[in-house]
Amino acid sequence: MTVSNTSDDNAMTVGDTAIVGLSPSRLALARFRRDKVAVIAFFVVCFFVFIAIFAPVLTSIFNLSPYALDRQALNDYGNPIGYFGGISWNHPLGVEPGTGRDILGRLMYGARVSLLIGFIGTIVTTGVGLVLGMVSGLRRGLLDSVITRVADLTLAFPSLLLIIALNRPLTQRLESMGVPKGNFARMTYIILVLTVFGWVYMARLIRGQVLSLREREFVEAARSFGASNTHIVFKELLPNLWAQVIVFATLSLPGYVAVEASLSFLGIGLMAPAASWGTMLGDSVRYYRADPTYLLIPGVTLMILVMAFNLMGDGLRDAVDPKSDRQQL
């Protein structure tokens, strides 16, 4: 879903008399701070990022190795001993059936993968989309129509289907091109296809913005002074676009996190022994009868992170563009 954001008037035009005189960014920040839900969401995201960064330290402090097998936690069937997937003092969120590996530890390590894919995916798609959108909007002419047509073509493809179909052969091709085998190649593939199918939305948004901005007085003025394209892009256009780019990126990041999980459910994604939320969910699917806790824990964790990003993104959008209505909730 693209962000339907038609405002080309920046925040200053809103008549909030009390804070006239503040810069747009400080204004937005002030508005964001007032949005309790968004602030909470922001802290939740920070919490996950913290855990992801310090996963190795945290797991070793609390003795929650994500790889160590624990035969003692399993019965003869290989299922966790005890209630709720073997939740115990040693294993606060239970153990993985079959191996007895600690679920909390695996969740912590998994946060790294999920966030890594989320952040890299977002940065790359946003970057590509931004550049192509700018070029398209500024240059017009042939280049513009080529980019627009390629965008149309990209959108005409059933993306999930192609991602699944091309997974194995393209990962192999990547490996044969010298990308390190295994999970590195798999992650590269995921980010690659996310970019191929994801840049369009960003590019369209930016193109539309650039098309309207380039006609505005301040750009024309700069141009009439003989400003170079570089100057116009960096000094005139980008400062007026950054807010929307950040909002858009924040709102698309949780999508990538969820996509990674869904792909793992379909058997595409990282390989064991690496822990990712997606592989955990993909594995737990088989246990929905025997050990439902094992499915619920990574599922709910994933939901919380995705929701936090969404709420934070909403808050950001409202802060940047107060015409949208949600802040009055």
């Binding site: 949780p254 999980a261 499915l295 939901m303």
Partner: peptide, 18 residues
Amino acid sequence: SVVGISLPTFFVGLLAIM
């Protein structure tokens, strides 16, 4: 809407079966 948008389809489906 916020909860729904944050749930992966397969998770909802499996929960429904469960």
